[in-house]
């Protein structure tokens, strides 16, 4: 149970960073933290006590594996997260190019 709680704590730390921080890079870090929390939670869903990693090295391996599907899904989610983070950082760098600041309070050319 304590590991699930740690996921939630990690999630909340990330949310805190997104909501309160004014630096764009810190917001991006908040996102990465939330993403890790979700991925960690997902990987833990497939966990079984005392089970092995789901890798078949011999054909007659006993089938006491942890659930491999969450691991495969987390891998996909990580790849998507990589793309999102890269895009977000690229946008942030371009914003810095235009506004010469990382502070969201000073980036408000839009009226809305």
């Amino acid at each position: 149970m304590i590991v699930f709680a740690s996921c939630i704590i990690l999630f909340l730390i990330g949310l805190y960073a997104i909501v309160t921080k004014r630096n764009l890079i810190k917001i991006a870090i908040g996102f990465v933290l939330i993403e890790y929390a979700v991925n960690l939670f997902f990987a833990l869903v497939g966990f079984k006590k005392g089970a092995l990693a789901p890798i078949i090295t011999k054909l007659d391996t006993p089938h006491n594996f942890v659930d491999p599907i969450p691991q495969a899904l987390v891998l996909t989610a990580i790849v998507i997260g990589l793309a999102t983070t890269a895009l977000m950082l690229t946008v942030i760098l371009r914003i810095y190019d235009r506004y010469k600041t990382f502070d969201i309070a000073e980036i408000k050319r839009l009226k809305g």
């Binding site: 895009l87 977000m88 942030i92 914003i95 408000k108 050319r109 839009l110």
Partner: peptide, 12 residues
């Protein structure tokens, strides 16, 4: 600048 700003809000 405006487009990047809008895009960042959208990403968030």
């Amino acid at each position: 600048g405006e487009q990047l700003e809008a895009s960042f809000k959208y990403i968030v």
